[in-house]
């Protein structure tokens, strides 16, 4: 989904940068607020950022005979809501633009818009819908991760079609062409990313239950989500902490 450096006409590059900037600034404020109000979130924020960092570094072969990389933005969107990923995703893209000659500074706005904004929001929406429909956290996680991945590549395709419409068939023709390059290749990767997300959340539901309850990902009373080996022996901590009245998500 990295549009190469210089491969968006100046007007498009500036337009996408202006479109992405407020989301990234808002995301930066969301991260600062989260860390300041809930310092214990730092660990999981680090995990969300690290997950995107690993996954977007690994290019994987697909059935179409080309290779592509997952995005990993769904984890942070599900845990902390999408704004946080606007910052974390952009940091990853900046790292790749500066050190790896992958993506670019002129296309950073467009790339951030697809991977750090549209992907996380689409994934978050899919997570909420699938979780509500199925009543199962892990089904929601699978849908959220896969959709965040796929939506990113669909967005890139549309951005390129907008910048380089086909001479005869216009925007639609170009969109079909770029979707053929990006979206089809991405389908197996999106499924794999969904499975990886399920693996990660299975670990988190066992080991990070207090955080997930505080973030509203899990309900506060001990429900048996999976075949959880620990019947939660610890009684709930005394409800004396006044800082606990945080916003429900």
């Amino acid at each position: 989904m990295h549009i190469a450096e210089g491969f968006l006409p100046p007007a498009h590059a500036i337009g996408w940068t202006i479109a992405a900037a407020p989301f990234v600034v808002h995301g930066a404020r969301a991260v600062v607020k989260e860390v300041r109000e809930n310092p214990e979130s730092t660990l999981l924020l680090g995990a969300a950022g690290a997950f995107t960092f690993v996954l977007s570094a690994i290019k994987l072969p697909s059935v179409t005979g080309s290779s592509s990389h997952p995005t990993g933005t769904g984890v942070g969107a599900i845990l902390f809501r999408p704004p946080v990923m606007a910052l974390l995703g952009t940091v990853v893209l900046l790292f790749q633009a500066l050190l790896l000659a992958h993506g670019g500074l002129t296309t950073l706005g467009a790339n951030a818009f697809s991977m750090a904004i549209v992907g996380p929001w689409a994934g978050y929406g899919a997570y909420r819908l699938a979780r509500k429909a199925s009543g199962n956290l892990l089904v929601g996680v699978f849908a959220g991760m896969a959709v965040a991945d796929l939506a990113t590549y669909v967005t890139t395709s549309l951005q390129l079609a907008l910048a380089f419409p086909d001479a005869s068939s216009g925007f639609a023709g170009a969109a079909v062409k770029f979707l053929g390059v990006f979206a089809v290749t991405q389908v197996p990767l999106a499924i794999a990313e969904g499975l990886l997300g399920v693996l990660l959340f299975r670990v988190l539901t066992v080991n990070a239950r207090p955080e997930l309850e505080r973030l509203g990902v899990l309900e506060r009373r001990p429900v048996d989500e999976d075949d959880d080996p620990t019947p939660t022996p610890t009684p709930a901590p005394a409800p004396t902490t006044s800082t606990d009245g945080e916003v429900t998500r």
């Binding site: 989904m1 491969f7 005979g65 290779s67 592509s68 890139t156 390129l160 380089f164 086909d166 390059v181």
Partner: peptide
């Protein structure tokens, strides 16, 4: 298994 990013760049250069 060329990367999709470079395939997209090639497609632009072609069209």
């Amino acid at each position: 298994y060329a990367g999709t990013d470079s395939l997209a760049t090639e497609a632009i250069e072609q069209s």
